[in-house]
């Protein structure tokens, strides 16, 4: 892949509401290099999912442009879809299929023949350690198993860029760590990962670089270390700031400590 894995310039999304137009994303610029694990953070309603949905061709772009693996997502959505894998919030799976059937179907939609699709499904089931459950209906899977299957289905066509929208929301700590391991393994195989999350620990553990979006605009961007160092330097903090501190600072929130309890107060 030459050039950026993901690039967005002036990305804007407006919706028509009863009280007029609502601007959910107000001009996002991003550049993600091949091989990165890039974290995209923000409070609820900040524009994370809307941005991801535009980048993954699921939402039309109101203004601005975006490329994934060098392909313009608005001009050539089909080609862009061939280069990216997508696992959205709330693992989107068909409960009436088995894990194997779902992966074979996905592979066939990406143009593989029956034999090749079955072989690829087998490889992926091994990768996400779901071989034993492969021929069971998905409706019987646990939340963690569904997430891993969703990841596998996003990888079926060996995408250059993988979009993960809150991949661990609702998972127990053990399942969360398993998903992190999968994400690292996928990245080590050369796939660029674009990850949105509400968990700052997750971003700290996984991401080489991250951006924080608030009110539809990117308010911070950099490596976790550089963002923490910038905060310490700017505010003169006596302790080493965490990513939580960076997030609260970037989104205009403060943390008030009272008698050991921690409460979040909107500034």
């Amino acid at each position: 892949m030459s050039g950026a894995a993901v690039e967005a310039q002036g990305l804007v999304k407006t919706y028509k509401g009863r009280g007029g137009e609502v601007e959910a994303v107000k001009g996002v610029d991003l550049r993600i290099e091949p091989g990165e694990i890039f974290g995209f953070l923000g409070p609820n309603g900040a524009g994370k999912s809307t941005t991801v949905r535009m980048l993954t061709t699921l939402l039309t772009i109101t203004r601005g442009s975006a490329t994934v693996a060098g392909v313009d997502v608005a001009r050539d959505p089909d080609q862009a879809r061939r280069r990216m894998g997508v696992a959205l919030q709330e693992a989107g799976l068909d409960p009436r299929q088995t894990g194997r059937e779902l992966l074979v179907l996905q592979a066939r939609l990406f143009g593989m023949g029956g034999g090749e699709a079955a072989e690829r499904a087998g490889e992926l089931l091994r990768l996400v350690e779901l071989e034993d459950a492969a021929d069971r209906l998905i409706k019987g899977y646990s939340g963690g198993m569904k997430r891993r299957l969703d990841l596998a289905s996003a990888l079926v066509h060996r995408p250059e860029v993988l979009f993960l929208d809150e991949p661990t929301t609702g998972l127990d700590p053990a399942s969360r760590i398993t998903v992190w391991e999968e994400v690292r393994r996928i990245n080590e195989l050369g796939t660029t990962v674009f990850l949105t999350t509400q968990y700052l620990e997750e971003a700290d553990q996984l991401c080489g670089r991250l951006a924080i979006i608030d009110g539809g605009l990117i308010v911070r961007e950099g490596t976790p270390e550089s963002l923490k160092a910038e905060l310490r330097e700017r505010t003169g903090l006596s302790h080493d700031p965490t990513l939580d501190d960076v997030f609260l600072d970037a989104t205009g929130r403060t943390r008030a400590k009272a008698e050991g309890a921690v409460s979040e107060v909107v500034a």
């Binding site: 879809r81 990216m84 997508v86 989107g92 799976l93 068909d94 409960p95 996905q106 939609l109 990406f110």
Partner: peptide, 16 residues
């Protein structure tokens, strides 16, 4: 059901 469960988006994100 596909739309509400998110599977429809999964299909839309494929080159179908």
């Amino acid at each position: 059901e596909d739309i509400e469960g998110g599977y429809f988006d999964k299909l839309r994100a494929a080159p179908v």
